[in-house]
């Protein structure tokens, strides 16, 4: 427990070049929802290097199985897939016990949400959400059906590429991240204003999950691999030691 790598140092400065700016006018909703003032840079204190800790017994056994966790009188319609990967920090170390929460549309591109008016039907056997804690290797997996693309009100003919939303807790509140996973080969990725809000081709590429044949389940499911990187911590503290922190 006392190895320096187990210490909770401050997080590295966030590299904003991999993230979309707050103001991305082709994604119209961002125009009125983006701060105009500069962010105030904070040196980390205990408030940033700590964060909520979750327990396995808070989750149910089917929480990471979207094929079964809302099945009422049959299975959901669509391509059966496994999505899996590792959550690591910028140092390449596994992020253990991170809460990974996912949500998505059904195979027809319709969300189970009272505000979704799209005419594609709700699937009575599909809820569209799941959650899992990463293991000691930072590994997670869940089973689901491949979501469909859908139209949305932005420009008149904008369609979202098929995607799964991901939320990650990390183990410090400053690591908190929400992102979206896309699927290899989807032609809608290139023109999506939400994807294009990221001005960094390499950063976009890391959101596109490749087909992972090694993880296919024979005569059952295809698989996609999505590795995620959260912010890394300093291991050596020296003059940057944070008061009250291990």
């Amino acid at each position: 427990m006392n190895r320096s790598s187990d210490q909770y140092g401050e997080f590295y400065q966030r590299d904003r070049s991999v993230h979309p700016p707050a103001y991305a006018p082709d994604y119209k909703t961002s125009i009125l929802r983006s701060p105009k003032n500069a962010l105030i840079s904070l040196q980390n204190s205990l408030s940033e290097i700590t964060g909520p800790v979750f327990r396995q017994d808070e989750l149910g056994p089917l929480d990471n199985d979207l094929i079964l966790n809302y099945a009422k009188d049959g299975l959901p319609i669509g391509e059966r897939i496994i999505v899996h990967g590792f959550v690591r920090d910028e140092n390449g170390r596994p992020v253990k016990n991170s809460l990974v929460e996912v949500w998505q549309a059904n195979a027809g591109g319709r969300y189970r949400h009272k505000k979704d008016q799209y005419l594609a039907p709700i699937d009575p056997n599909f809820g569209g959400c799941g959650r899992v804690l990463t293991d000691d290797n930072g590994y997670y997996f869940f089973r689901t059906i491949k979501p469909g693309p859908y139209p949305w009100r932005n420009r008149v003919n904008d369609w979202r590429p098929a995607h799964i939303h991901f939320s990650l807790s990390g183990d410090g509140f400053a690591q908190r991240l929400i992102t979206q996973m896309y699927f290899e080969g989807d032609p809608l990725i290139a023109t999506c204003p939400i994807v294009r809000s990221i001005n960094n081709e390499e950063a976009v590429r890391t959101l596109i999950a490749p087909l992972d044949r090694n993880a296919f389940v024979q005569l059952d499911s295809m698989a996609y691999r999505f590795d995620i990187v959260l912010r890394g911590r300093r291991a050596t503290l020296f003059e940057n030691r944070i008061q009250g922190a291990k």
């Binding site: 966030r14 590299d15 991999v18 993230h19 979309p20 994604y27 961002s30 690591r88 920090d89 910028e90 140092n91 390449g92 949500w103 969300y111 949400h113 505000k115 979704d116 939303h165 939320s167 991240l177 929400i178 992102t179 979206q180 939400i194 994807v195 809000s197 990221i198 960094n200 390499e202 950063a203 976009v204 890391t206 959101l207 995620i228 990187v229 959260l230 912010r231 890394g232």
Partner: peptide
């Protein structure tokens, strides 16, 4: 490694 890019949480 580079941190994974953020994307909007969206309306849903």
């Amino acid at each position: 490694l580079k941190e994974t890019a953020s994307q909007t949480a969206g309306p849903y």
